[in-house]
Design a protein around this nucleic acid. Structure first.
Lengths: 222, 222
DNA sequence: TCGCGATTCCCCCGATCCGGGGGGTTGACG
DNA sequence: CGTCAACCCCCCGGATCGGGGGAATCGCGA
């Protein structure tokens, strides 16, 4: 963990020579970051990290020998204290999610001015999650869509008019448990559980247990 | 849609008088936003929007008569061109997701300086999704967790060593379709499908069709 | 007070499923 | 050229499922 009194020790992984030099030159104007490692590909970065003391990595995605996502995964596994910030031209949701899942702390687009990149590096070194505006917008859209779908599913589930007991039985049924096991766990007769499942099938408009499990999953149960 | 030549027309919904006045005073120093509507609760905001021309709303969450989330939902439904930016002390993921699902364009925490709030309002008026650093961090964490879980599920699915045909059958089975229907759709004999499902049950380590559907859902199929 | 829905329990029966078993053909890979 | 995995087909018996009845109790609101 760096403290505020010394510059953040930075590694840069970028295969394109011109972009790399341009980035290094622009970073050179800032005294609060110090580039201590430069790598033309992911493998070189991982090798270099074995000896260099690094706080933050600025990571390109498209690189030979070991791409940015795989390199991020390797760094996150072997040096969990190192914060990786992606710096790339790709702004699609899949790529962003992939990088974050691999363990990236932040995600910047390459058109950011140097001040923003430096601020992001400092933020990441303090445990923050710096993202470009456009990336934040993508994340917001993703969460919005997911959450709206979840709420809509819950609303449709409510609209089915299930009783409390039916909902309870459905929740267990949704996990793949058989009727007799449900009966045991709810202290009911097998006949009673079958009676409830019959009502459930009618209300869910399904005719097989498997379809009921599927429907329950679609409604967000389990 | 506002253009750059005129100030952004802003509405403020905040029930706490002192906070509201403080916010209005601080916003007053900026010429690129103009507060055209002030409401002490969600209902008053919605009523006011019927007559006022507003580009962006700064919305508190805890308010009487109509809370910020419900008000956001109402605004998003009736005036989809109006961008709502939450401005609140709540920073928990559930609250953030709820607000975004309701249609909020951005989400700011109340300790932001006035410059940041104004910049966020301008961003929102241009279709952006302004979020405080801490909120971005929460969104990143959420996406990271989800995506990592998804990838892990896919990895475990691969580890099962299903054949292409089995995977195909499982995908259909997971939707609740019966064996004979699977046979029809894949141009197979019922016996063949049953043969595949037997292998699937063994590899998935389940003993009922319902549990298989459940397992498939857990592995991210469907 | 009356009725209605929710909950619980029970019976029956045909269709389907589950888990064994058995084989045959093809194609890839050593 | 063998062999092994994948794919396909078949049989059967016991268990379960799905759908059809009916009935008693209880609580809550009309």
């Amino acid at each position: 963990m760096p403290d505020a009194s010394r510059p953040v020790r930075l590694a840069v992984a970028e295969d394109h020579p011109a972009l790399r030099e341009s980035l290094l030159r622009r970073l050179g104007f800032f005294s609060d970051v110090e580039v201590v490692l430069v790598a033309p590909d992911g493998q070189a970065l991982v090798d270099g990290l074995a000896t260099a003391q690094v706080d933050v990595v600025l990571m390109d995605i498209e690189m030979p020998t070991l791409d940015g996502v795989a390199a991020t995964e390797a760094v996150a596994r072997r040096w969990p204290a190192v914060a990786v910030v992606m710096l790339t031209v790709f702004e699609d949701e899949a790529r962003i999610a992939e990088a974050l899942a691999a363990g990236a702390a932040g995600y910047l687009l390459k058109d950011e001015p140097a001040e923003t990149i430096v601020a992001a590096v400092l933020d990441a070194s303090r445990g923050g999650a710096p993202v470009s505006d456009h990336v934040a917008s993508t994340l917001v859209r993703r969460v919005r869509t997911q959450e709206a779908a979840r709420r809509d599913a819950a609303r449709r589930l409510d609209a089915l008019g299930l009783t409390a007991r039916e909902r309870e039985v459905l929740t267990m049924l949704a996990t793949g448990v058989a009727d007799d096991a449900i009966a045991d766990q709810l202290y009911l007769s097998l006949h009673t559980v079958q009676s409830h499942t019959k009502s459930l099938f009618r209300k869910l408009d399904v005719h097989t247990r498997a379809a009921a499990v599927r429907a329950a999953a679609d409604y967000g149960l389990g």
